[in-house]
């Protein structure tokens, strides 16, 4: 019989994979999407080139927010010792 706690663990691991894919997409998309042009013609946000601002600063803050949200919504508390789950 499959341990119920493992279904939770498996789902949370898959969420981890999904988060990394989102993280990579934001990081890659903004960096090379906005940053591939001529550096002398970059737009600036708060003093930083726009690609850098979105990819490294806003992107990271967004990821931290997303991680906080997924933990709050999807992550469940389970006991780690065997035998506790029946109680």
């Amino acid at each position: 019989m499959q341990d119920k706690r493992f279904q939770i663990a498996n789902r949370e691991a898959l969420i981890g994979v999904a988060l990394v894919m989102i993280n990579f997409a934001i990081w890659f998309g903004f960096a090379y999407g906005l940053g591939s042009g001529d550096p002398t013609e970059y737009q600036y946000i708060l003093g930083f080139p726009a690609w850098f601002f979105y990819s490294c600063i806003a992107g990271s803050i967004f990821m931290i927010f997303l991680i906080w949200l997924t933990i709050k919504i999807f992550f469940k508390d389970v006991p780690f010792e065997d035998g506790e789950e029946e109680i």
């Binding site: 341990d3 706690r5 493992f6 939770i8 663990a9 498996n10 949370e12 691991a13 969420i15 981890g16 994979v17 988060l19 990394v20 993280n23 990081w27 960096a31 850098f52 990819s55 490294c56 992107g59 990271s60 990821m63 991680i67 389970v78 780690f80 010792e81 065997d82």
Partner: peptide, 27 residues
């Protein structure tokens, strides 16, 4: 700096993948 940000997943990915399963099995 862009390259160094590839380290961000080290903060969450490792713990989410090993996560509860590793904690339960290792006990």
């Amino acid at each position: 700096v862009l390259l160094s940000m590839a380290q961000l997943p080290a903060g969450y990915f490792v713990l989410m993948i090993l996560g509860k399963k590793f904690a339960i099995i290792s006990r």
